[in-house]
Nucleic acid binder design. Structure first.
Length: 696
RNA sequence: GGCGCGGUAGCUCAGGUGGUUAGAGCGUUGGAUUCAUAACCCAAAGGUCGGGGGUUCAACUCCCCCCCGCGCUACCA
């Protein structure tokens, strides 16, 4: 690997519309924090950058639903997340936010820079504008009469009845679905970033250049994207919340959120280092690493680097160690179903147990595939690894030293004396020493390679070897007649404890501190960073040094504690205010009873059902509508199997214009309820009725 | 459906460019031990390496087909 002078480490900017859960932590922030702590311990020059991503439509909608301004909305979640990160001990050098003035300036400069180079494409088009709401309307927020078939409720992008794809301007009598008013046509200009022009460069840089050093999941995802062909991406929006487009004709427009968000890394660095931020982003000897979840791969590997490239003079990410996802008790983590372990709640329920969560999340880190967090597993990891292996080892060494030497580090005597017992001790010592140094090297090699799970395992090996060393040498037996040997053994055991205190710091910072304080190390640990340079055991505790009192590092997690957590998941709490509200869609424009009565809604019975060829979502249903039997296609394949649909009563719109999908005509539409998760459930009468019964 | 990433002991995972009895930790069982939070140490049992073909003297490792999980993408009227 190239030798870099400094490191710029970023962790994905979390979106400021909800609290953090363990999936976020395991995906990006914990690995990033572990890596950064490691770099700092090595004495590297490193900045660790993060902040809240606070722009985008989702924020404005969320704010609207809570009846607050976007600013107030993001303020709330920004401080919530910042506090949770702080409480958990993620050691950002700065946790900033994209609503900061510095960020506005930076993002605008970026835009201007690329704009001035003439790289952007500009396109002006007439778009409908809702004068009452003062907003431009996206195509699907406009309805009107279809020019082809006369359907009065065709959407701006497509008519449901005849299936023709439309543009909003073809509609007769367009209406805004937001206000119900007639929108007016206004020209609006947008800017596009020509990603396609960077295709060959991306191929060279990623497909060829990072074939071997990027993770397979990351590389594969990028290659797939690039191979599919890239297209210009619009990077501006008609919106009043965000970074204003810094051009004369950019009034009322903001930078699209994915354009401004990654620039947030740079603005945050500026905020942190106003005078020399540039070297972290522009000096080729700076190593840029993005820690993200897999949902962010293309932005960080393809789009943002292209933007950096266009801006010119910026370093590109050297690596993007993206993690897969974390599941919880066998299910996807879901905010709306409250199927999640919220970071702030964990910290409340398990005070003083930050390292336990770190340990658990690292040991199941979704580095190569989705992982599953279970509370039972958490308990087992804490009890049988942290308590039994690490905590126990440190404790028994401390207790032995106090017992035999009043807590003073005994001297190491030359042991290879004549008798066999001492020879055996020397053998065991040599064995342990070799194994320990191997583990240290393995641990550090894995850290360099972003393999944190494995690295942490090697760290724990130090404790395993330590335990074995004690069991092999049995100092408590020697105490009867060979205190010199006991002293040598404990001297070495304390050396191991000291090295563990150093080695565990990237993974378990609180534990490191705790062990150090038990070793009473404040006066002696100045040279301990040598460990990271030499990549081998150092001699951290001098003889005669007075130790502090022994204290247990970890407590066992009792069954009741995890039972409580599991129960909490099973019984989703009476959903919290803003969470449920933000999941509910806004009301559509008012209709009259006449509008409603045009619909022929009736109950039918499913006679047959089969999967559509080549489709993941569509089921082909044969429905008895009372008046006929017909074929209806429905996008419910993810939610219902063909078998369970047969015989079911369904509600359908029977007079909807037929529509061809995947080569087959659908004659009607099955009504479904969709919850916040996107989960679909059939709408049925609560008692069986005759097929053909109408709904009104 | 297309593309990408995975599918190895009960659980979490290792297994460059194919080569003797497929490994580790945790769990389980048995033993030993008492310095230690019934912890530690030793040992054993546990896998037709998702399924089926093929290439090869030899495949977990290469090729083809299929199944399952996850993600991106198209069809959800």
């Amino acid at each position: 690997m190239k030798n870099f002078k400094r490191h710029t480490i970023t962790a994905a900017l979390p979106y400021a519309n909800g609290p953090l859960h363990i999936g976020h932590i395991a995906g990006a922030y914990l690995p990033a924090d572990t890596y950064v702590r490691y770099l700092r311990l090595k004495g590297e020059d490193v900045v660790f950058i993060c902040g809240s991503d606070e722009h985008g439509v989702a924020i404005t909608l969320g704010a609207k639903k809570e009846g607050v301004t976007p600013k107030a909305f993001v303020d709330k979640y920004h401080s919530l997340m910042k506090k949770a990160f702080g409480d958990f001990g993620i050691s950002f050098d700065i946790y900033s936010r994209t609503s900061n003035p510095v960020h506005y300036e930076t993002a605008q400069e970026f835009f201007k820079n690329i704009y001035d180079k003439g790289i952007f494409l500009e396109e002006t088009s007439d778009q409908y504008y809702d004068e009452q709401e003062g907003i431009f309307l996206a195509d699907r927020y406009i309805i009107g009469t279809c020019p082809k078939c006369g359907n009065p409720n065709a959407y701006g992008d497509q008519c449901e009845k005849c299936g023709t794809s439309l543009s909003p301007r073809e509609l007769i009598n367009p209406r805004s679905t937001v206000s119900g008013k007639t929108p007016v046509l206004k020209p609006t200009k947008h800017w596009y970033f020509p990603l396609d022009k960077y295709e060959s460069w991306l191929k060279e840089w990623i497909v060829e250049g990072h074939k071997d050093d990027w993770k397979t999941n990351v590389y594969g995802q990028c290659k797939s994207w690039i191979d599919q062909g890239l297209q210009p991406r619009s990077i501006t929006r008609d919106l009043d919340w965000g970074v204003p487009v810094p051009l004369k004709d950019g009034k009322g427009k903001v930078l699209y959120v994915w354009f401004d968000a990654p620039i947030g890394y740079i603005s945050a660095t500026k905020e942190l280092k106003p005078n020399d931020w540039k070297k972290y982003w522009q000096d080729p000897e700076s190593r840029l690493i993005h820690f993200i979840g897999k949902d962010n791969i293309v932005f960080h590997c393809v789009i943002f680097p292209s933007i950096l490239k266009a801006a010119g003079g910026y370093v590109l990410p050297d690596n993007v160690p993206a993690n897969e996802f974390l599941n919880l008790e066998g299910d996807k983590i879901s905010t709306s179903r409250n199927h999640a372990v919220w970071l702030h709640e964990y910290l409340q329920d398990f005070p003083g147990r930050r390292d336990e969560l770190r340990y658990m999340l690292t040991s199941i880190s979704p580095e190569t595939k989705d992982a599953d967090f279970t509370w039972k597993d958490y308990q087992s990891k804490v009890n049988s690894e942290l308590v039994a292996i690490l905590g126990n080892f440190v404790n028994r060494v401390m207790v032995l030293t106090w017992k035999y030497f009043d807590g003073k580090v005994p001297s190491a005597h030359e042991l290879p004396a004549t008798d066999d017992r001492r020879k055996k001790i020397l053998n065991k010592y040599n064995q342990a020493h070799t194994d320990l140094n191997t583990s240290v090297k393995d641990m550090i090699a894995a850290l360099d390679d972003f393999r944190f799970r494995e690295s942490q395992f090697h760290m724990m090996n130090l404790c395993r070897i330590g335990n074995k060393f004690l069991a092999d040498t049995e100092p408590w037996k020697l105490a009867k007649d060979d205190m010199e040997a006991v002293g040598s053994i404990l001297n070495y055991a304390l050396t191991v404890v000291g090295n563990i205190a150093i080695a565990c710091e990237p993974f378990l910072p609180d534990t490191a501190k705790n062990i150090k304080s038990q070793l009473n190390s404040s006066a002696i640990d100045a040279s301990w960073k040598e460990f990271w340079k030499k990549q081998q055991l150092i001699d951290p505790v001098p003889q005669n040094h007075q130790l502090g009192k022994a204290e247990l590092l970890f407590k066992n997690i009792e069954d009741e504690e995890i039972d409580k957590q599991v129960a909490k998941l099973k019984k989703p709490k009476v959903v919290e205010e803003q969470k449920s509200e933000s999941a509910v869609k806004p009301l559509k424009a008012q209709v009259t009873i006449d509008d409603f009565s045009k619909l022929d809604i009736r109950v039918g019975k499913v006679l047959a059902a089969e999967k559509m060829e080549k489709s993941d979502k569509l089921l082909k249903l044969t429905v008895d509508t009372g008046v006929d039997q017909r074929t209806v296609l429905s996008g419910i394949a993810k939610h219902y199997s063909p078998e369970e649909m047969v015989g079911k009563q369904v509600t359908l719109i029977a007079n909807l214009a037929p529509r061809k999908m995947m080569g087959i005509e659908s004659q009607g539409m099955i009504l479904m309820a969709e919850d916040a998760d996107g989960k679909l459930r059939l709408l049925q009468p609560n008692e069986v009725v005759n097929p053909g019964s109408t709904v009104s």
